[in-house]
């Protein structure tokens, strides 16, 4: 029995140490981090982790056969008219209007290494979690976690990186200039917006340093979020119920392919006694939300602002009310 107790004590010890370790390392950063994620030098382009470690380094030149595993970068190629440099695309089916010349190289959790080798790429662009699977290849790799950039304006900067490998520098500069001007300052609305998800295993709330929180903030509203966090975090049932009972506008980002059945997808919230009477609804698939969030965040922000103000249906968002 005593041994058992010692054993448990040891485990508790591990947990406490780990908690302290991780908390100590947590940094707050609400500024644009895309500046830190990559750097372009005279002859090289290097990518970095959030902590500043060099993740990958490639020669700065025009690449003609790119395999793109970090799918969101496709938008930048598209706007630069450089789709022709891409030979293979991961999760190809989820991107609209892809030319036939671009082949699929796997989807979901599965990378098709053979397809990649067969396409004879001169560059692979991926997320850092895919690096382990690509270790055996001898092809130049650029690993960049674009989704870490929470600032809508910051996301534009990846355009510079893509232009550096597609030889479209001038075009990129022009687009960057045009797009930066499109962001307008919205008046403060005195509305707080709450986004909560329940995927069946608990409640998740976005951190304050996430893209969605930034969008809400830039639309003039106040996001109800977790301080100093840059991911969606699990929260307790009680605090979820408590947050829902406060007078917030509830934001529901619907991941369903079609609008139909959206009430089923938010049944965890509608099952509660005090569910919000008014929600802001967005179907991410139909509105092409994720693709637009790479370059056209201003559209999303303006739309959210307008919908919150006028309560009329917008391109991305609409207000739905329930009768009690």
């Amino acid at each position: 029995m005593f041994k058992w107790f010692c054993n448990r004590l040891y485990l508790i010890g591990i947990i406490i140490t780990l908690v302290n370790l991780s908390c100590g390392e947590e940094k707050s950063n609400s500024e644009e981090i895309s500046n830190q994620l990559f750097s372009i030098a005279e002859e090289t382009i290097s990518t970095h982790s959030k902590n500043g470690r060099v993740v990958s380094e490639i020669e700065k030149k025009e690449y003609k056969r790119v395999v793109l595993l970090a799918t969101p970068f496709y938008t930048y190629f598209e706007v630069l008219n450089a789709e022709n440099s891409i030979v293979g695309l991961f999760n190809r089916e989820r991107v609209k209007k892809v030319p036939k010349s671009i082949k699929s190289v796997g989807e979901g959790a599965h990378l098709n290494l053979e397809k990649i080798i067969q396409l004879k790429p001169d560059l692979i662009i991926c997320n850092s979690h895919q690096l382990e699977d690509l270790k055996s290849l001898t092809i130049p790799i650029m690993a960049c976690d674009e989704y870490l950039e929470a600032q809508p304006r910051g996301r534009l900067k990846f355009l510079t990186m893509i232009s550096a490998i597609t030889n479209t520098g001038q075009k990129a500069e022009k687009i960057l200039k045009d797009f930066s001007l499109k962001y307008q300052n919205h008046e403060t609305l005195n509305i707080s917006v709450l986004k909560l998800d329940n995927f069946g295993d608990g409640w998740y709330q976005p951190g304050c340093n996430t893209y969605i929180s930034e969008v809400i903030r830039m639309a003039g509203a106040t996001p109800v979020c977790i301080e100093e966090s840059n991911i969606s975090e699990k929260i307790a049932y009680e605090s979820a119920v408590f947050k829902l009972s406060e007078n917030n506008v509830f934001l529901f980002m619907d991941w369903g392919k079609k609008k139909r059945g959206w009430k089923k997808r938010m049944k965890h919230i509608l099952e509660l006694d005090n569910y919000p009477k008014k929600i802001v609804y967005c179907n991410t698939t139909q509105t092409n939300y994720y693709k637009e969030s790479a370059l056209n965040s201003h559209l999303i922000i303006d739309d959210l602002n307008a919908v919150l103000k006028t309560e009329k249906k917008g391109r991305f968002f609409e207000i739905k009310t329930f009768e009690k």
Binding site: I15, V19, S22, S49, K50, N127, H129, K135, L148, I231
Partner: peptide, 26 residues
């Protein structure tokens, strides 16, 4: 607990490892 404390890059990497893959062998 660790998953709660980690950032999204770490979580992604861990989850992908857990699915098992023969790609990583060298």
């Amino acid at each position: 607990v660790l998953l709660q404390l980690s950032d999204s890059v770490g979580i992604k990497s861990y989850v992908f490892w857990g699915m098992g893959s023969f790609n990583r062998a060298n």
